[in-house]
């Protein structure tokens, strides 16, 4: 058997030495919510941009602190800059939060399987995000909207904790103003000043117009939210093979060597993070590996 390293290095998506990060410069820091911010990064000079497909992630390295996997949240059609939306919850992500314009960080990637935006041609699309889970879905939204004629009905359902925790509010409003996409936003808790939906995101599914027999659904959020969302979609009649979820696990090498990203017999880096639900249905039911 050939050594695994040689096999992986032969793939186009992996850099010459996938363990060595490239140096990217911060060009913009945008605070999205109380604890979440978006970094716009510029590739090194002469690098020729950064190409990725919706759903992929990078390993981002804060020098002297550590490295974490973060989904790419920018427009896949714009390879000039790299965008990541990050929630400051641990030491590394808090270090990213402290970065200033022109500061540098390390980037390895892109890694992982994408959302099935190409297979979904001719079908209705339902994109369902919860909390920070909208960030990995945003590149899929950009792709679908910039190739709108290739798809049937398009719906985006988004659930957040409170109105103050809604990501990309301006963009959501712009998308909602379009006539060719159905956008529903809901929050779990709100005062009466909030005049839109209150309740969990699963409640939005019966209110959304799509043909269950010809729909691709893409879901990203906390696993418990995804479990109930999948159930609601199955109840509505969407096939399990047409439901895609993005799974998250701790990662170290980002190359499947260290085993940190193991999910049952699968590796999130190599086999995911996007999986069709029928592929991981049995694993979803295993409590011991739930997060």
């Amino acid at each position: 058997m050939e050594p695994m390293l040689e096999v992986e290095l032969s793939e186009d998506r992996v850099a010459v030495d996938p363990m060595v990060p490239s140096l990217f410069a911060v060009t913009r820091i945008h605070r999205e919510t109380r604890d979440t911010f978006t970094l716009t990064l510029e590739p090194p000079e002469g690098n020729g941009g950064f190409n990725f497909t919706p759903g992929q992630f990078n390993m981002l390295y804060a020098f002297g602190v550590g490295e974490v996997p973060i989904s790419i949240s920018g427009d896949p059609g714009d390879g000039r800059l790299l965008t990541h939306t990050i929630r400051a919850v641990g030491s590394v992500t808090k270090a990213f939060c402290g970065l200033k314009k022109s500061d540098s960080l390390g980037v390895r990637g892109p890694f992982g399987c994408p959302w099935p935006v190409h297979q979904a041609g001719g079908k209705d699309i339902v994109i369902i995000g919860g909390g920070i889970g909208l960030a990995p879905l945003r590149p899929a939204v950009y792709h679908v909207l910039s190739h709108r004629e290739k798809y049937g009905k398009v719906a985006l359902l988004y659930g957040a904790r409170t109105p103050n925790d809604i990501l990309y509010l301006r963009e959501l409003e712009q998308w909602r103003a379009r006539f060719d996409v159905e956008v529903h936003i809901t929050v779990d808790h709100a005062t009466t000043a909030w005049r839109s939906n209150v309740g969990v995101v699963t409640r939005l599914i019966p209110r959304t117009s799509f043909d269950p027999s010809n729909t691709i659904a893409m879901i990203c959020g906390p696993e418990v939210m995804m479990r109930f969302t999948v159930q609601e979609l199955l109840k509505r009649g969407v096939e399990s093979s047409d439901i895609y979820v993005s799974m998250e696990r701790n990662m170290k090498c980002g190359l499947g060597f260290c085993g940190h990203c193991q999910y049952g017999p699968l590796f999130i880096w190599k086999d995911g993070p996007v999986f069709s639900f029928d592929r991981i249905r049995a694993l979803f039911a295993v409590r011991e590996i739930r997060r």
Binding site: D35, R87, V89, G130, G131, I132, G159, A160, R161, D165, D188, H189, G199, V200, T202, R203, G221, P222, V224, M225, F228
Partner: peptide
């Protein structure tokens, strides 16, 4: 009732 229970979970909190 199921939806209310999910709301109670505070799904999107950090739980740190």
């Amino acid at each position: 009732l199921e939806a209310t229970r999910l709301q109670l979970l505070d799904l999107y909190g950090t739980h740190a």
